[in-house]
Amino acid sequence: MDNGEIRKDIPDDGLLPGISSLKKEYYRKETVWHRDWKLAFPPSFREVAFYDAANSDLHRADIFTPSGYTIEFQNSPLTLAELKSRESFYPNLIWVLNGKKFKGFKILKHLPDVDDPKLDAYEFCHSDHLSMIRKAEVIQGITNPKILNFYHPELKGVKLTSNLYSFCWKQPHSVWYAATAKIIVDLGGHFLYELKQRKQLNGNYPYLKMLSRKTFIDWHTPPEI
């Protein structure tokens, strides 16, 4: 589905088959976190409704921008089915998650550029410690490959970035690792963190990319005339 196929010309609620009053009431209930995020965008961007004729369903985007991006603010866990449903309906979806509710979530260390060509022959270890293993040993099927930290001669010259971080999540909501849309984690304060993954043979390596809250909002809000 492209942007042109998302219908905003929905009929009055009374003419929508299968849309219960309970569902309409649900859309009016939201947390302070949810409301404050929506207030950061112009009124015309908020609560934009789309009618899904194929499923006789009503979708309300928290934010829908003139450039065709949908921003959904998620304060609670989501099922995989609901995740796939929303991602299939909205072609340019961005999730903003309330990370302050995540249990056991902690930012750890600065990372190098994960796409640095110097690291092509290595894979990050899935641990709280910043370390890597040789990709060749993974390919060879070595059970306990040698763990290298960034003081090791092979990695010592690799510089760390100021905006990429490792993190731990002791009780993860694993559904978010299955998302195909961009994910932004809000931990409070002036900065946000995009949840990204580096593709690896030993399993994708999740990491965070920091950006300012103001920058994120400005990206999706046209300048004032």
Rank of each mutant, 00 (worst) to 15 (best):
G157N: 04
I147V: 02
A179Q: 10
L195H: 01
K146C: 02
E154S: 07
M210L: 14
K146Y: 14
S166M: 15
I184V: 10
W176D: 12
L192T: 04
V158C: 02
Y193L: 03
W169M: 00
H190R: 14
P145R: 03
G157M: 00
F216L: 11
M210W: 15
M210K: 13
N204Q: 08
F167A: 09
K159T: 04
K156R: 04
P172R: 13
N149R: 03
G203A: 12
W169H: 06
Q171N: 03
A178G: 04
E194P: 10
N202G: 10
G157H: 01
C168H: 11
W169L: 01
Y151D: 06
K146T: 09
N202S: 10
P145Y: 01
L195I: 10
K182N: 02
H152G: 07
N144Q: 12
S174M: 12
V158A: 10
H173T: 10
V175N: 07
L208Q: 14
L187K: 07
I217M: 13
Y205D: 03
F216Y: 15
K159S: 12
W169P: 11
P153A: 00
L164M: 13
L201V: 04
Q200M: 01
L187D: 10
D218T: 10
N202K: 15
L192K: 02
S162G: 10
N144M: 11
M210T: 09
N204G: 11
E194N: 05
Y165C: 11
N202R: 15
E194M: 08
A179P: 01
R198C: 02
E154V: 08
F191P: 02
C168L: 03
L164N: 03
L155Q: 06
K196P: 11
S166D: 06
Y193K: 05
P145K: 06
F150R: 13
Q200D: 03
Y205S: 03
D218A: 07
T161N: 06
I183Q: 09
G189F: 14
P206T: 13
L192H: 08
A181G: 07
T215Y: 00
Y207D: 11
I183P: 14
I142P: 15
V158Y: 07
A181Q: 06
T180E: 09
K146I: 06
L201R: 06
Q200P: 04
H190C: 13
H173V: 11
K209Q: 08
R213H: 02
K209V: 01
L211P: 13
L148Y: 08
R213E: 01
I217F: 13
T161E: 12
N163K: 06
G189A: 09
P206R: 11
T161I: 12
T215P: 04
H152T: 00
L192Q: 03
K159V: 05
K196Y: 15
Y207F: 05
T143K: 07
W169T: 01
F216W: 15
Y205M: 12
G157C: 02
N144C: 15
I183E: 09
S162H: 08
G188S: 02
P206L: 00
Y193E: 01
I142D: 13
D218S: 14
K146Q: 10
